[in-house]
Design a protein around this nucleic acid. Sequence first.
DNA 1: GATAGTATGATTGTATACAATTATACGAGT
DNA 2: ACTCGTATAATTGTATACAATCATACTATC
Lengths: 227, 227
Amino acid sequence: MENQDVKQEVTDKYSLRGRVFHRIREDILNGKYKDHEELKEVAIGQELGVSRTPVREAFRQLELEGLIQIIPNRGAYVTGIKVKDIQDIYMIRSKLEGLCARWACEHITKEQLEEMEENIYLAEFHAARGHMEQMAELDNRFHNILYESCNSKMLEHLLKDYHQYVWRVRQQTLSSSRGAVSNVEHKFIMEAIKENNPDKAEELANQHMINAYENMLDKGLLELYEQ
Amino acid sequence: MENQDVKQEVTDKYSLRGRVFHRIREDILNGKYKDHEELKEVAIGQELGVSRTPVREAFRQLELEGLIQIIPNRGAYVTGIKVKDIQDIYMIRSKLEGLCARWACEHITKEQLEEMEENIYLAEFHAARGHMEQMAELDNRFHNILYESCNSKMLEHLLKDYHQYVWRVRQQTLSSSRGAVSNVEHKFIMEAIKENNPDKAEELANQHMINAYENMLDKGLLELYEQ
DNA sequence: GATAGTATGATTGTATACAATTATACGAGT
DNA sequence: ACTCGTATAATTGTATACAATCATACTATC
């Protein structure tokens, strides 16, 4: 099954459709294409140097991810990131990361635990020096390890999706002072998993998300996405 | 935004792609296409009387839903329903239906509450007479009302997806004696929402899913999907 | 007989051509 | 001036043609 992801990456890298899909996805998430903007097949095809076919296939996928809305015989329109959606995702993730941490207690491998410890150790180093970019990357990686350690492809896939979705906001959040605090929370979560305490791990992961969310609110970071 | 769903239905009904998508989806979920079976574009196109283009677009969507796996330049292979996936989904849904019920306390409309009451009342009637088909439909509808009442398009969409995914299993479960019990649980959930008690509503919805899951295990209904 | 290499056929990936639908502009009628 | 209808342009929906890739079978070589 890990195979599938590898294959997927290969697809995305070498097929035009995959490249178009990821490119448009990025452009929407990064704000190049604004809310309600119309995406035209030929225009995007020309911009990327491909025909309409791979563009259309990419559109179908983007629609299923909720990033665009396709109206039959009319066109594809960007569905921008809504503040409400981000809020909802944080609450949903709160529950699911809790579940993920709970399952991780039983299924995490020695290698994954070691990588977590290394991750946290490294993050302490970079936090002390204010290396924001590295912090963001390490945070990213910590959560991905957690997702992979729960032994559920379903949950892993779901959480990775949401994680991606709020990536931009998250990066800004971590660029604030929360980086160090967040890392300490990671440490507690890891320790709970290590001592195989599912209730504690769940509760901590739960709270970790809520803290991140409230920090975001406090800092007014969501206003960037106000409509 | 409710508009979007309507538009989507129109697409699915009138576009070839939408029809192909739903048809293949059904066929996979209903077991016509077995696990690991290869789906060939031309064959399916001929069977449905369309060209490869709409079939390919449908494939891309099915891949994103995880129902098929596309290996570049090789083909599309059915990813059958795994027992593990169903188990995971029930646990994920347990958490999310809880969250949904919690949010419903604040956001449910008078109309939705009335439809819920009617639903439960009707279900009592059919449960007493052993009308399994109606019970399944009413259960379906109850959960959909709940999803729609939480005021979160994100959560609603997610829960509806999962609900669909385990539809077959669920129907079998309800065809057993649990129908009446399940309806009583619905009643309690509704009452908790009605009296605006989020903690209680969440806990009850939570447990409702776990009960459904354990009933499924007890009855050995998952063995139908054993690989 | 086993294996490596090659040729052939099947299948997918992409581009393009044509059909259907929708939006826009223009003009006639009031 | 306004509205309705029609013509035209733009855009998407679908089908098909061609290119690239992969699987299979056959043959030559050891």
